[in-house]
Structure formats: C-alpha cells, structure tokens
Design a protein around this nucleic acid. Structure first.
Length: 216
DNA sequence: TCGGACTAGCCCTTTACTTCA
DNA sequence: TGTGAAGTAAAGGGCTAGTCC
C-alpha cells in the first residue's frame, strides 16, 4: 500500500495544477487572455477598478463582482510559492501580490482555496486507503473465521494455540471468538499481547482513536 | 493576574462565474 | 444552442490566538 500518509498534517501531495490541464485545450485566444491587461475596446476604468481598487465596492451594492481567471504565469508562481510555504506572512503576501500584479487579498484567497483543495485531495486519498484496508481486513477476518471453524471441527487434532501465561497449549475446544473485536481468544479471556495489522501503526491518530477499546 | 475589547489570520461554507462535454 | 457538471475565484461568517488596556 503506497499512499498511506504518516500524518495528516505532514502529507505532501503532488497535485496537478488546478484548472491548468483543462486550460490546455482552450482556444489560444481565451487561453492567453491576461486578466491584468486592459481589454481592448475601452472600459479601462472599470477594469482598473476591478483589479486594483477598493475591494469593498462589490459588497456595497456596486457592480457585481467579476470572476477573474489567473494567467498561467500567475498560477505557476502561486503554485511555486505554495510548494515552498503553505501559508504566507504579510510581507511575503505583499511581495507576491506586487510580483503578480494582484491585490494581497487575492493572493490570500488563492492560498486559502489552495489549502482547501490540498486538504480535500488528502481526505480523498485517506478515504481510498481506508476502504482498501477495510477490504483486506474483511478478507483476513473471513480467513480466520474459517480457520477457527476448522480447528473446532478437528478437536482431536493437536492444539495450536499457546496460553500467553503458561505457554501451555490450549485445547481448540476452549477457543472462542470475541464478539467485540472478533479475535480468537481462549475462554479464560487471556490478555496476551495483541498485534495490529502491519500498517496499523502508521494510520493517522483519528483512525486510531476509533479502534475498539482494549478490552480483549 | 484576570478579563473584556479589538484585530488579524485562518477555516468552512456558499455564491458566482467560466469552461467543457 | 441549451444544459448540467466540474473547477475555482471570491465573499461572508465563525473561531482562535495575540495584544492592549
């Protein structure tokens, strides 16, 4: 299993640039449109207002906000900066905004959205991993149940389970399945050392906390 | 030392807009 | 040409930590 994060806060993802791939198929006239360039054919003042001026305008009953597409270069620089740091201090934000000819608020919002996308991707990957883990545990459980049935059926055979206390072999007839954790135990409910599945120790703490209480 | 007011930054949810199939 | 889905920029509200008085 290759995708297990060591911790949810430290997962590094390689995510394709949002909207970047899809933009490749755009007509060049659209793809190369630079939102920071003044559109030809007038409306210069409006354009400057939308890009650099007071951002409260649209919330005060002004003209409806216009959704802007970031250019490839802006996206590239933002991604690059995001790779170095997932958060920006005010100075970095200001500098980046200057460099990109955007408002600091736009840079801030972009980072917020980018963090959200990153988190979403991470959650999806964790979900996928847990699904697969669940599947393999289910299969393992099935196998163990079959094994128990077989052992019960062949009572005459030599016992294969040792008591953790006495190290004496336990008769198969004394073995039961714990209804809670579905582990095979002896009827004396010995508390021997338990082992988690191979990867269990690397699952995030959230997952760990949902495991059954150590009653078995 | 404690607590209330204020501020900045972040997250989460929602909205608005664009693009594409 | 119309439409729904997906992607994403932006807005707004809530929470929290830090600072000041």
């Amino acid at each position: 299993m290759a995708v297990l994060p060591s911790s949810s806060s430290t997962l590094e993802l390689t995510i394709s640039m949002p909207g970047f791939a899809s933009s490749q198929s755009l007509p060049s006239s659209v793809r190369d449109l630079d939102i920071n360039q003044i559109p030809s054919g007038g409306a210069e003042e409006e354009w400057m207002t939308m890009n650099m001026d007071d951002e409260e305008e649209s919330s005060n009953g002004g003209p409806p906000r216009k959704k802007l597409r970031l250019t490839k270069e802006q996206s590239r620089l933002l991604e690059e900066s995001f790779r170095q740091n997932h958060t920006l201090n005010p100075k970095q934000k200001e500098a980046l905004a200057m460099q990109l000819k955007l408002r600091p608020r736009q840079v801030e919002v972009w980072f917020q959205n980018r963090r959200a996308r990153s988190k979403l991707k991470q959650t999806e990957m964790e979900c996928e991993y847990l699904k697969r883990w669940f599947g393999s545990l289910t299969e393992q459980n099935r196998r163990l149940q079959r094994e128990v049935e077989e052992l019960r059926a062949m009572k005459v055979g030599p016992p294969t389970v040792l008591s953790p206390h006495s190290c004496e072999p336990l008769p198969a007839s004394t073995l039961t399945m714990c209804p809670r954790c579905e582990r095979v135990t002896s009827t004396s409910h010995d508390k021997g050392p338990t082992k988690t599945p191979n990867n269990a120790t690397t699952v995030s703490t959230k997952v760990k906390s949902r495991q059954s209480p150590a009653t078995c």
